[in-house]
């Protein structure tokens, strides 16, 4: 039983990280029809920004203080949001309605930004210090679970709640929901859609940066490819959950994170990723719009 609890909480923590990356992707695609392949780089830069802040204030091999870790979170969120805003304003804005060009430019930006981290901080993995209380394990029904997994789950739940409230009760939330249905009509109501695009991109980048911090804490180390590897699963989450659906992303992330962990532990260590691909294929065949996606 304790093993099941451990595997379940680990799977949910992985799901939480996927969700932080996928929710921004889903919002961006929902409103702007942009497949943002640079999103993984925002995650990576968030992780490195946090690591840089922590390593400046933490002795080698030591634990970060809670204050420094909180400051690192702010740095990661700002780094993700700033990179995303720059990408949208400089690279994507001139290319709206040119889908192939958008894909190519985000792919190129993602590769360049990832390579830039390797140039600055080298390819080798960096240990990711975290507060002592996050690195310790807690006993839950006999299972010894690292506290950082529980924190990651709590952060994702909080982000989900805030995003659902944002989408439902704010004017920008209304614009995002309406824009996902009919962008042109939103403009015809006198709304500056470009400003909404930038906001959504910045929000998505901020969430990716946040994911980067907790991804670092989850894996205990980071390297320049951390975002790229997780981006693949985030795209799968977005497709299974339904493009543009935040609730769908949360549900799909949970399904994928748990399936990966259960398959890896109870079947074979290599099977987790394979199960995810099978799930993707089944959803695409049976329900192409995803679990909670709207008909487009």
């Amino acid at each position: 039983m304790s093993t099941l609890i451990f595997i379940t909480l680990t799977g949910l923590a992985l799901a939480a990280m996927y969700f932080l990356l996928a929710s921004g992707l889903s919002l961006i695609f929902g409103l702007m029809d942009v497949l943002n392949f640079a999103h993984g780089a925002f995650f990576t830069w968030g992780a490195y920004a946090a690591w840089w802040v922590i390593s400046m204030k933490t002795p080698v091999g030591g634990n970060a203080s809670t204050g420094v870790f909180l400051f690192a979170i702010v740095a990661a969120v700002v780094a993700g949001a700033a990179l995303a805003t720059g990408t949208e304003v400089v690279l994507l804005r001139p290319l709206y309605r040119r889908t192939i060009s958008q894909v190519l430019v985000t792919l190129g930006a993602g590769l360049a930004l990832t390579e830039l981290t390797a140039v600055i901080w080298k390819h080798d993995a960096k240990l990711f210090p975290q507060p002592r209380w996050m690195a310790t394990t807690l006993t839950i029904a006999g299972a010894r679970v690292p506290a950082n997994r529980l924190v990651l789950i709590a952060v994702a739940v909080l982000v989900l709640a805030v995003m659902l409230l944002f989408l439902r009760y704010t004017r920008y939330g209304l614009i995002v929901r309406a824009g996902a249905e009919n962008r042109e009509m939103v403009q015809a109501l006198g709304i500056d859609v470009n400003r909404a695009f930038t906001l959504v991109f910045a929000l998505g980048g901020a969430l990716a940066g946040l994911g980067g911090v907790f991804g670092g804490a989850y894996f205990k180390s980071i390297d320049p490819n951390i975002g790229t590897v997780n981006l693949i699963f985030a795209f799968i989450v977005v497709v299974i959950g339904g493009l543009g659906s935040i609730g769908g992303s949360a549900l799909a992330a949970a399904i994928i994170g748990l399936s990966q962990q259960y398959a890896n532990y109870y079947a074979a260590a290599w099977l987790g990723d394979f199960v995810v691909v099978i799930l993707l294929a089944v959803v695409l065949l049976v329900r192409p719009r995803g679990l909670l996606g709207a008909q487009r």
Binding site: L174, Q187, I191, D192
Partner: peptide, 21 residues
């Protein structure tokens, strides 16, 4: 959006209401 803000209301041919709202 700037043209609309000058004081133009538009009712499109296919109504284009936001069905999910």
């Amino acid at each position: 959006y700037r043209i609309v803000r000058r004081g133009v209301g538009y009712v499109p041919e296919d109504r284009d209401v936001f069905g999910g709202l």
